[in-house]
Amino acid sequence: MREVPLTGGPVELRGALDAEVTANGVMPRRLPAWTREQYQNPSVDGVTVMPSGVRLVFRTDARELEFEVLTFTGQLDGDPHPRPTGMLELLVDGALAGRRRAPLGNVLRMAGPGAEQRLVPGEPGVVRFAGLPVGMKTVELWLPPQTPTELVALRADGDVLPPLPDGRRRWVHHGSSISHCIEADGPTGTWPVVAAALGGVEVINLSQAGNALLDPYVARTIRDMPADLISLKVGINIVGLAAFRLRSFGPAVHGFLDTIRDGHPDTPLLLMSPVSCPALEETPGPTTVGPDGRIIALGDPAQVPAGALSLAVVRAELEKIVSVRQARDPHLHHLDGRDLLGPDEVDDLADGVHPTAAAYRRMGKRFAAHAFAEDGPFR
């Protein structure tokens, strides 16, 4: 087994916009380094290093590969077990060739959600994939979407070469946890990855669990990066955190779109509203979690006429914004999120807001059927 450099060599890190050099190796980050000083909440940094859609790509004639990684996962005080670390998946020439549970490494202990974290140090772990096909092949190692993962080492028993140019269109997507897909059954089971595979495109998933709040640094990131297709899924975090009133929400959406259009004036751009979420359909946030583990809305529906936001209000406003802008922006499109997961499927929301792994795969197929159809926005 020969050591392969993780940076400055034949291996490409795709799906990440930054690779932070650490004491152990390399930590992929899904937003560029310059954005870090603008994070108002530490949770943004935490979800940025959760590598949803991030993968190592290279060509090799090796029959055996060895990856050494150091993971970070959480554990609540009183819970005897850390949260599951998720799966590493190996694709060979586009086909799934193996799955391995990511090894347990560092554990972040906390008294409860949002509480101060205490690090329980761990050690890097090794995963191996053996019996790979003979001959030169393209290999992709996909990292778990819910677990920050430092890349420590890559070893192979054969030659490792750079990947061939991808050639596919690049689709950039930004959304909430429902696009980040922490609950997916594996990294290729997130709905954006499922949809990208069906549409024959390469996806860059900039979704931020709990933090899809029209942050200007995200808009500037999308503006400045190569993109052939762009989609934005807006609303659930804004309502759940009561982050805007109607008066400020519309201009914020317009401003986000304006910034992206500064760099991509003619790129197909699909603006999506939230999927179904019974607790917030007619009731504003903020939200909390009830004793049964399901989301509860704390807002007053009587405040909606005064400008409080529910999902129903957000959907209507997003549809109106697209309609108004389409006269001068014919490449802007709209999709009602309920077309991906509707009110008759809320039993697939285990906590009242996040879809199950099976529902994520269904959402990916539905998105692809809409967006990549012959008359679709990403045709």
Rank of each mutant, 00 (worst) to 15 (best):
R2K: 10
P5D: 05
T7Y: 08
A19H: 00
T22I: 09
M27F: 10
P28A: 05
R29I: 13
R30W: 01
A33H: 01
Y39W: 11
G46D: 14
V47F: 05
V47P: 12
V49G: 04
M50G: 09
R55C: 15
R59N: 14
A62D: 02
E66G: 14
E68F: 12
V69D: 03
F72D: 12
F72E: 14
Q75H: 10
G78A: 03
D79Y: 04
H81V: 13
H81S: 15
P82L: 09
R83I: 05
G86A: 01
L90T: 02
A97V: 04
R101H: 08
P103I: 06
G105N: 05
V120K: 13
P121R: 10
G125D: 00
V127A: 03
P148Y: 01
A156F: 07
D157G: 07
D157T: 04
L161C: 05
V172R: 00
I178W: 07
H180Y: 03
C181D: 04
D185S: 15
D185Q: 13
D185P: 13
P187N: 05
T190Y: 01
T190E: 05
A197Y: 04
G199L: 09
V203P: 13
N205E: 11
N211Y: 04
L213E: 08
L214N: 04
V218F: 12
A219T: 00
P226E: 02
A227C: 04
L232D: 08
A243Y: 06
R247P: 15
S248C: 12
F256Y: 05
H264G: 06
M272W: 02
P278L: 03
P286K: 06
G290Q: 05
Q303L: 15
L309W: 00
V313I: 12
E319I: 13
Q326Y: 09
P330C: 13
P330L: 10
D336R: 05
G337N: 04
D339P: 12
D339V: 15
L340T: 06
P343C: 02
A350I: 11
H354P: 06
A359W: 06
K365P: 09
A371W: 00
F372Y: 01
